[in-house]
Design a protein around this nucleic acid. Structure first.
Length: 424
RNA sequence: GGUGGGUUGCCCGAGUGGCCAAUGGGAGCGGACUGUAAAUCCGCCGGCUUAGCCUUCAGUGGUUCAAAUCCACUACCCACCA
């Protein structure tokens, strides 16, 4: 069981580093083995990058292990220096508390809290807040060597680039304390995380060995690297969020559908719960018939379904098909059109008001930043009304251009769509 | 504390009185090709009531017909010296 899982993870490229593999297998073979993964509240939602490790946690639960999802109500107040070239600015405590709630809800949707290996939700503020500074320094701090702390990547790189505050320097101790606490409370002896968390995780492994004289384990998953060298999950508009009010299901679907061919295999291995043979069939299709983008579509479909449900996933896929239409947009019946446009950003015009000129319409739709930019795009042939290229600057849409008398579909370039709706 | 250097458009970085909305590169955007991909090629890339006008080169004030470029002060950064 444990070996099969680890072999599968290895095939997926989901193991960056681990503590002794044989020992880890042994632990995973023991009854009731559990593992934990922590997230700090640094925003009101998790983002797609967080989903990498979260997916891994879910795999473990599906394989029969007990997952513990930890939200860093305490560590989020301090700030993790890992992967950061400069000091973080501290967030207000009540803001962080609010984010903890939001993230907790997202995590709850991702794991199963029933059954014999029901997931556990934890917040490190629960055990960190009651500890006094003196207790912390005597009981925990005493087990840490500053020499070793300084050697950690997260600290060493910061010492070279402008320094680090005592606050962030202490972060690894707090995370180690978390691991110790979960070890004590739930007998949890495996912590997983992104590969940037290795240093923080082994700090906990060391602490458990020193305090409890027991061995605990660490497993990290590689940070996703894109073929073009840019960071996964970031777009020009910002991060891809799991919260549908921050990144719509439609945008999420499009994000994955538009993946670089070279990245699709790794993305499927990372996020998909399909079997190895199913995935290999998709990789084959990617090679032999890349234009069909079957693998991209499955990827987009599966992630969207996982995060927003099958209904939503189905809807946005149908919408995308209709809007990028093989078919004629005017032929869509009103219901299909309406539900498709519902997935897009919207601009409204009051009924009875004149339809603005083409330049103004493109500007107010928000696909460009200024009128000058709108003029440029129009002149360059990048502005489309109802999927038809319109290059005339002095053009003004007429009421006969309205789809079903109340909608216009604007497009900038190949994929930037906006709906214009005439409202009462 | 002393001396010297720097602060330019999203980023890097040229420009040392007019020809500067400002060279070049990157990012971004549009087009062509294709597959809502990549690569490549072409174009764009401060704003506006767009053949013209307006506002930008850390900030403030000054010199000049004319300043990103000269002067003064302020703020921040860097280097060498103590």
């Amino acid at each position: 069981m444990s070996k099969a899982l680890l072999d599968d993870l290895t095939w997926r490229g989901s193991i960056a580093q681990s503590t002794d593999r044989a020992e880890l297998e042994k632990y995973l073979s023991s009854p009731g083995a559990s593992l934990y993964l922590g997230f700090d509240p640094t925003a009101p939602s998790l983002h797609i990058g967080n989903l990498v490790a979260l997916t891994l946690l879910r795999r473990f639960q599906l394989a029969g292990y007990k997952p513990i999802a930890l939200v860093g109500g305490a560590t989020g107040l301090v700030g993790d220096p890992s992967g950061r070239s400069a000091e973080r600015s501290l967030n207000e405590a009540d803001l962080v508390a609010d984010w903890v709630d939001q993230i907790r809800k997202q995590l709850e949707g991702f794991l199963d809290f029933t059954g014999k290996n029901a997931a556990i939700m934890a917040n490190n503020l629960d055990w960190t807040a009651p500890v006094s500074a003196i207790e912390f320094l005597r009981d925990i701090g005493k087990h840490f060597s500053v020499n070793q702390m300084l050697a950690k990547d997260s600290v060493a790189s910061r010492l070279e680039s402008g320094g680090i505050s005592y606050t962030e320097f202490s972060y690894q101790v707090m995370q180690a304390f978390d691991y110790l606490e979960l070890f004590r409370r739930h007998n949890c002896a495996l912590q997983i995380g992104g590969s940037d968390q290795w240093g923080n995780i082994v700090a906990g492994v060391d602490l458990i060995r020193r305090v409890e004289a027991k061995s605990a384990h660490a497993l990290t998953i590689p940070l996703l690297a894109k073929a073009d060298g840019t960071k996964f999950g970031k777009t020009a508009e910002g991060a891809i969020w799991l919260d549908p009010t921050m990144t719509s299901a439609y945008a999420l679907f499009q994000f994955f559908l538009n993946s670089d061919d070279r990245d699709v295999e790794q993305l499927l291995k990372t996020f998909s719960f399909k079997s190895r043979s199913e995935l290999e069939a998709l990789f084959e299709s990617l090679k032999t018939n890349p234009g069909a983008r079957e693998a991209h579509r499955e990827l987009a479909r599966e992630v969207t379904t996982l995060l927003h449900g099958a209904d939503q996933a189905q809807k946005v896929e149908v919408a995308a098909k209709a809007l990028f239409g093989q078919g004629e947009i005017r032929d869509l019946d009103i219901e299909t059109l309406k539900s498709s446009l519902a997935e897009l950003p919207k601009t409204r015009i009051k009924k009875g008001e004149e339809i603005p000129s083409w330049v103004d319409l493109v500007t107010s739709s928000g696909v460009v930043e200024s009128k000058s930019a709108a003029r440029r795009v129009i002149k360059e042939g990048g502005a489309y009304l109802n999927n038809e290229k319109i290059t005339g600057e002095d053009f003004t849409p007429k009421s006969s251009d309205l789809l079903h008398g109340q909608f216009l579909l604007l497009r900038k370039g190949k994929r930037d769509l906006v709906a214009v709706e005439i409202t009462d």
